[in-house]
Amino acid sequence: MESVTHLPGLSAVMIWTLLKVLIVFSAVMGIASLWTWVERRGSAMLQDRIGPNRALLFGRWQLLGLPQLVADGIKFFFKEDQVPPHVTKSLYWLAPVLAFVPALIGFAVIPFGRDFTYKGVPYHLSILEPGNSMGMLFPLAIGAVAVYGILVAAWSSNNKWAILGGMRASAQMVSYEISLGLAVLAIFMKVGGYDPSEIIKDQMASGWFIWRQPLGFLVFFTCMFAESNRLPFDFAEGEAEIVGFHNEYGSMKFALIALSEYGHIITASALIATLYFGGWAVPFMPEAPVLLTILFFLIKLLFFLWVFVWVRWTLPRFRYDQLMFLGWKVLLPISMANLIFNAWLMSRGH
C-alpha cells in the first residue's frame, strides 16, 4: 500500500474508490448472472417443476443446474452475431450499451455497509461518497435514463412489434416514475435530507420506513416492478405472449439487454432495502461491526431480489389499460395522499 500511494496521481482515496467500483460492479454482475439461474430454478420450484439440471460441469457435476450459467454464457459468446439487414446500424449497436450502463451505475450511491475509520481516515462503503448532494436523485435520474435503451432498441430494430413493445415500455416507465418520485419525496420530507446514508441514519434512530410509511412502501414497491419491467408489468417483452422490444437482437447483444434487466432489479431491491428497510442497519444492534452490516445489506438485497422472482411466478400479467389505470388513477392519488398526510403530520408539531 505504501509504495503504491507514492505513485503520482494515485492516492489511497483513489485506490479505495477504484476498489469499491471493482467490487460493486463485479458483485452486481455476479448477482445478476446468478439470478438468471435463481429465476429459472426458483420458478421451477414454485411451480412444482425441476428446472435446468442437464448442464454438467466437465460432464460430471450437476451442482443444482448451476453449470447452465456457464453453458449459457458460452453459447451467447459463440453464437453468430447476426445484424438484420433492415436495422439502423449505429443505433442498433448503441442500444444494448444504453440499456446496460444505467443498469450498472444506478447502484453507485447506495451504501452497502457502515462507514468506518481506519488510521484516522474515514471510509464510506458506497461508490459516490455521501454528501455529494446528488443523493437519491441519482438513482432516480438513472432510472429515468434507462428508458432510452429500450426506446432506441425498439426503434432501431425497424420492426413494428418492437416499436410497439418499446412504446408500451416507455409509456409505462414514464407514468410510474411520477408516483415513484412522490413516494420517495415523502421519505425525503420525513428525513429532512435525501442522502441515502442520512436516510439510513434516520431509520436507525426512529424505525424503518416500512412501519412509518407503509402506504408509501406499497406505491414504491409497485412502481419498482414497473420501472424494472418485471412481471406483472412486463410490457416491454412478454416472453411468449407479447413480442417485445428486443426481438431483433441475438447473441451477446441480447445477453446485455437481458442482464440489464437483472441489473435493474438489483438496483431496485437495493433501493427498497435502503429506503424502507434500513439499508445496512442491523436490527437491535446500532453499533454493529462493518462486515455484519454488509452481510445484512446483502441479506436484505437478496431477499428482495427473491421477492421479484417470487412475484413474477405468482401473478399473471396485467392488461395494458389496467396498468395505466393502476398507475394514474390508483398509485398517483395514493402517493399524493401519502405525501400530504405526512406533510400534515409534520406540520402539526410546528
Binding site: 426458483g42 421451477a44 420450484m45 414454485l46 411451480q47 412444482d48 417443476r49 425441476i50 439440471n53 417470487w310 412475484v311 411466478w313 405468482t314 401473478l315
Partner: peptide
C-alpha cells in the same frame, strides 16, 4: 396477492423438501 404468494411459497417449500426422484417430473 399476499395470499397467492403464500400459496406459491408453500409449493416452493414442498418441492424443495422432496427429493428429486420423487417429484412430479419424470426426467
Amino acid at each position: 396477492i399476499a395470499q397467492g404468494m403464500i400459496i406459491t411459497f408453500r409449493h416452493f417449500l414442498k418441492q424443495i423438501a422432496t427429493p428429486t426422484s420423487k417429484r412430479f417430473t419424470i426426467q
